[in-house]
Design a protein around this nucleic acid. Structure first.
Length: 485
RNA sequence: GGCCCCUUGGUCAAGUGGUCUAAGACAUCGCCCUUUCACGGCGAGAACAUGGGUUCAAAUCCCGUAGGGGUCACCA
């Protein structure tokens, strides 16, 4: 009862680190933090064809970036290592021998063709495809004979017949399965590598995992794993199957939904704290109206009992809102650091800005901060300073320049700007008032034409700030381009 | 197809039989602030998939139907 909570995240390094995986990792991490337990990270790489060390690095890097650290596991070690499944093969072997010796598992020599035919026949009858158990009762001599001949074989575990396999899932509640739909399944492949369902059980049991928190897609695997726990004589842990993250079309989130990997969000200039905050809220709700959570608040408040059963659509708008919130708390230097790579990529900033350029870029970022929800958006927001393609973006915008008073405003502003000793945000601001009084027009009719003339758009930061940042010459050029047309 | 899970506004979701003429947030729209644009503030529209039960009373419990998803591998 007072046993320490031990949870784990066990990704397979077979590709970019998916946002769904990140959420699973986060939930596990938060449960560990909340209960003062231990969080273990283990690598499931038994699929040797698809596993790569690059993706293992990716995953570890992404976890660290998100601030999801682990107490035991890969790279950090621990009492129950090794933490990479391909390094645990001898451990699995030991238990397989035991299972074999106890008659709880057996060799199967069926060919893939036979199996395929069997399966199709069952499917045709509308039944769940289940292995017939043909090899379960092969005479000992036959087995030895076949083995000596070197016949390809797998090892299957015996699954009880006519039993109900039940579990009390921490998020789904009571779930039950008919053991007849499980059948004697493979635990060791013909290449001698044990299969996932078998390794997880052994690893989780040997690593003393108390709570298995993972995505719902594993729910149907659970009865198999329960069969293994029983055969091995281990107590099963508590399970918590968290529903999937869906794309806007309510289908499981995949590449065609846009960015699905953690590194893509990192590269787009999202903040780790924001992503974590957003992911936590995807499926979990606090006991209050709170939306923004510090790490400590998350650790303190997170609980599996408030995790929803239904799948959640990944709403990028909400992520943007949360990220925007976190960006507001960045000081100018941090904001600049976040935005700089994007400006460089767009060709708006040099590889190594000198102090003069850096200071100017920093001011640009600061001026644009209310118009940027994540790093990459700085490019679009700051475009006006770097491109000559600033013609009015649409008809509504163009109409501003066609206003009766526009030419007079523009031309007065040009003259006033020329006459200024020094162009700063503070020295420019009074000019607008002067124009208003001089020409007797409303504010809107002075700000808007100037804004459109020099930026091409009707929105953006304070006009005086834009003018100061853009510099007298460029502003004058742009004004003239409109006036002298 | 078999098995399993899910179903409250466009989205995330609160809600565990009466306090629901159903909370909050994102998004949308409107107003205010601002002699420009945003930010911000205030407000509005917008939902219990469906049919039967049970009950004095159901978004909440039971059964069916529909829809969505997952899984049925010598992938993880």
């Amino acid at each position: 009862m007072s046993q320490e909570v031990r949870v784990r995240f066990a990704p397979s390094p077979t590709g970019p680190f998916h946002i769904g995986g990140a959420r699973s990792a986060l939930f596990n991490y938060l449960v560990a933090k909340h209960t003062n337990g231990k969080f273990v990270v283990r690598i499931e790489d038994t699929d040797r064809k698809r596993s790569t060390s690059e993706s293992e690095e990716n995953i570890k890097e992404a976890l660290k970036w998100l601030g999801i650290t682990w107490d035991e596991g890969i790279d950090v070690g621990g009492a129950d290592g090794p933490y990479r499944q391909t390094e645990r093969l001898d451990i699995y072997q030991k238990y397989t021998d035991k299972l074999l010796a106890e008659g709880k598992a057996y060799y199967c020599f069926c060919t893939p063709e036979e199996l395929e035919a069997e399966k199709n026949a069952q499917l045709a009858k509308g039944e769940t495809p289940v292995y017939s158990g043909k090899c379960a009762d092969l005479p000992k001599e036959t087995v030895e004979q076949y083995l000596k001949e070197g016949r390809p074989h797998v090892i299957r575990i015996k699954t009880p017949k006519n039993e109900t396999i039940e579990l009390d899932d921490l998020v789904r509640g009571h779930v039950s399965f008919d053991s007849n739909n499980v059948g004697d399944f493979v635990i060791v492949k013909s290449d001698g590598i044990p299969v996932y369902n078998y390794c997880v059980v052994l690893d989780d049991a040997l690593m003393h995992i108390t709570h298995v928190i993972r995505a719902e897609e594993h729910l149907s695997n659970t009865p198999r794993q329960l069969v293994i726990y029983k055969a091995l004589g281990f107590d099963a842990p508590q399970f918590a199957h968290v529903s999937l993250i869906l794309g806007a079309d309510k289908k499981k989130m995949s590449k065609r939904h846009g960015a699905t990997s953690v590194q893509q969000y990192r590269d787009m200039g999202y903040l780790p704290d924001a992503l974590v905050n957003f992911l936590a809220l995807l499926g979990w709700t606090p006991d209050s109206d709170q939306e923004i959570f510090s790490r400590d608040e998350l650790n303190e408040q997170f609980s599996l009992s408030r995790v929803a059963k239904n799948p959640a659509v990944f709403d990028i708008e909400k992520l943007n809102w949360i990220n925007f919130h976190y960006m507001k708390e960045l000081d100018e230097d941090a904001l600049y650091t976040l935005c700089l790579p994007h400006l460089q990529k767009a060709g708006y900033a040099s590889e190594n800005p000198d102090s003069r350029e850096a200071a100017w870029l920093k001011s640009v970022c600061a001026a644009m901060r209310e118009h940027v929800q994540y790093g990459a958006q700085i490019v679009d927001a700051a475009k006006v300073f770097f491109t000559e393609d600033y013609a009015p973006e649409n008809e509504e915008t163009a109409a501003v320049l066609a206003e009766e008073t526009a030419p007079a405003v523009l031309s007065m502003f040009r003259d006033e700007l020329k006459a200024l000793d020094e162009v700063t945000a503070d020295t420019v601001q009074p000019l607008f008032k002067k124009i208003q009084k001089g020409l007797k027009v409303k504010g809107k009719f002075v700000y808007m034409p100037i804004r459109v003339a020099i930026t091409g758009v009707m929105h953006g930061p304070d006009l005086n700030v834009i003018v100061a940042l853009m510099g007298r010459e460029k502003v004058l050029d742009r004004l003239s381009a409109v006036l002298d047309k």
